[in-house]
Simulated assay, not measured.
Amino acid sequence: MKRILVPTDFSEHAEDALKIAAQIAKKINCEIFLLHMLELPSQMSDAISGGSGIPEVMLFIKKANETFQKIKERPYLNGISVTETVHFERASNGILAFSKKNKIDLIVMGSHGSSGIEELLIGSNTEKVVRLSDTPVLVIKKDIGKFEGKNFVFASDFSNEIKKPFKKMIEFIKIFDANLFLVMICTPNSFKTTLTGEKLMHEFIADFDIQNYSLHIFNDANVENGILNFSNSINADLIGLCTHGRTGLAHFFNRSISEDLVNHAIKPVITFKI
């Protein structure tokens, strides 16, 4: 891992994410990219693309650069290479495009989450990035101080399609020398006997050379509650899982557990796209 992207709207939540990104960067000696997206009215965007300098836009850019300079002076960024960029694009689209173009290895984002009708109708930029990013996304919901990452929960159905993103997850947990808790959540709608679940998990893990792990079957009313309740029961530092990246109607009718957890979990969540 060489490059970490931290999108920022200069909010408290974005700074919480930057603090965690800084801790990771210091552990593995990597670079941080700070990205601020300016979503402008269409007429302003057209003027910029045509080379015109609109005073309002120039003011936005100036203010963003001034804020970047203040952020780069934060003590927790000492010794880290930080590159700042301002882009004019819709936030989620711009983040995804920047990540791909600059070969980002990890995106760290802050999120306040959403609920009720707001969550159903629009969701958050963080949620959209989680759903669509090919790069792993680490979502931070609050200032958690020192990020240990020692107890890592990875929840899955342990099907064959999970094996590729699982390899990325293994590389990530090596940063923290974490204890890996692999958990299968069984619900009334997706019930498996303990013997069946354990057999699936043992067959899955046999293809990987990992240590410091344990296998768990956890029963709950639904998958999301199961992941949250199990994570709380072992005092997890981080929750990991995979997302399918559904779009359109498929996404509307089959909301991703990953996105729901991003909205509702207090603990940090990292997602890996299948």
Rank of each mutant, 00 (worst) to 15 (best):
E66S: 11
T67Y: 12
F68T: 02
E73L: 10
E73I: 01
R74Q: 13
R74D: 12
P75K: 13
L77G: 01
N78M: 05
N78K: 12
G79M: 06
V86D: 06
H87Y: 12
F88K: 09
E89D: 14
A91D: 06
S92E: 15
S92K: 11
N93E: 12
N93F: 10
I95G: 06
F98M: 07
F98R: 07
K100A: 12
N102L: 05
K103H: 10
D105M: 04
I107H: 04
I107C: 05
V108I: 12
M109V: 12
G110Q: 06
G110E: 05
G110T: 07
S111R: 03
G113N: 03
S114T: 12
S114V: 06
S114Y: 00
I117K: 09
I117M: 15
L120C: 00
I122M: 15
S124T: 15
N125W: 03
N125S: 06
T126G: 08
T126A: 09
T126H: 08
E127R: 03
V129H: 07
V129K: 06
R131P: 01
V137F: 02
I140H: 09
K142Y: 13
I144P: 05
G145V: 03
G145W: 07
F147C: 10
E148D: 13
V153D: 06
F154L: 15
A155V: 03
N160V: 10
E161V: 11
I162W: 01
I162P: 00
I162L: 10
I162N: 08
K163S: 14
K163N: 09
P165C: 02
P165I: 04
M169F: 15
I170G: 07
E171Y: 03
F172V: 04
I175V: 14
D177I: 00
D177H: 11
D177E: 14
A178I: 02
A178W: 01
A178P: 01
N179T: 13
N179R: 11
L180I: 15
L180M: 15
L180G: 00
